[in-house]
Amino acid sequence: MSGDTDHGAAAIAAARVERRWAGLSIGIICVLVVLAAYTGIHQAVMPQAQVETADPRTLHISGEFIESNLGSAVEPDGSVTVRAIGQQYSFTPQCILIPTDTPVRFRATSADVIHGFLIEHTNVNTMLVPGYISAATTRFSTPADLVMPCHEFCGAGHEGMWGRIKVIEKSAFQKLAADRRRMTCVAQ
């Protein structure tokens, strides 16, 4: 490897061992990259596809993040879109209602500083950066009550920023959807 020629046989042997190890190392890295890529694609866990922007100043005045449009919406294709906002120190809606066995797409953004958006025990885990819209897709197989903490420091009240997720049977969800266009599990 050194390009020198005046070493003895031992040096040549050492260089050979070294080259083999370097080859093995490269092999390990390739396997890891392929493995990660394969599992990700296979299980559809990928970073969001698009970059979109939103102005945190006017979220509550116009556009898809106005108060009455937040929550879970049933799309024409049967999938569900959940729109949410993170702000100091809560998510709105603070309890998100989701049906089982349905593709769910989250669209969320921040109204002030950086927040985290994490549903415990799932792979839904993204950042809310003011100015940009975050997206995540998932699917729930069984009913559950889950917590949704903000996982990025967002100010002195950060420790109080816990939302909740309620996953209910698809049939029960559809009943609710019959007479409401945006659903949440916020108690009123």
Partner: peptide, 14 residues
């Protein structure tokens, strides 16, 4: 201290 799991941050933080 508020009540974190009820999504209540301490009043004084805002």
């Amino acid at each position: 201290s508020g009540a974190p799991m009820r999504n209540i941050a301490p009043c004084a933080t805002c």
